[in-house]
């Protein structure tokens, strides 16, 4: 079963993301962190196949998290989707520069997010 980590500080958005991703064609286990710290704690605990993160969060923002994941040999191969509201083009650009694999605009179409996620998950042959 593939594992997905959601990092998002809004509880509602979190559960929406989770329920959207739980409906992927292949069975997945979804874990959620409500801020960057929690994400840092969860990362070493499970082997994630995908990280989905918001940008604007307290403590550690999404860009910093992307930077951490992509600069870390252990995690750099985990595909990463930024889900953030439109209008923050600069932040989006930075995210992609830092190595994020995809960017999805909030409000998101569940089907569109699933498509991006499924695509990234199937590109990653390590998971079983």
């Amino acid at each position: 079963m593939q594992r997905i980590l959601i990092v998002e500080d809004s509880a509602t958005m979190r559960s929406l993301l989770a329920s959207t991703l739980e409906e992927l064609a292949s069975p997945v286990k979804v874990l959620a962190a409500s801020n960057g710290f929690e994400a840092l704690r969860l990362l070493p605990r499970e082997e994630f196949d995908l990280v989905v993160t918001d940008i604007n969060m307290p403590e550690i923002n999404g860009l910093e998290l992307v930077s951490f994941v992509k600069s870390n040999d252990q995690y750099r191969d985990i595909p990463l989707i930024i889900v953030s509201t439109e209008g923050s083009e600069k932040d989006r650009e930075k995210g992609m520069q830092l190595g994020a694999d995809a960017y999805v605009v909030k409000p998101f179409e569940p089907e569109a997010l699933r498509e991006v996620a499924q695509d990234l998950l199937s590109r990653n042959p390590v998971a079983k």
């Binding site: 550690i60 910093e64 930077s67 951490f68 600069s71 870390n72 252990q74």
Partner: peptide, 15 residues
Amino acid sequence: VSTLPSPGDAPESQI
């Protein structure tokens, strides 16, 4: 202004 995490010297155990 900002807090950037990165892997520590021993990436498995340090941050």
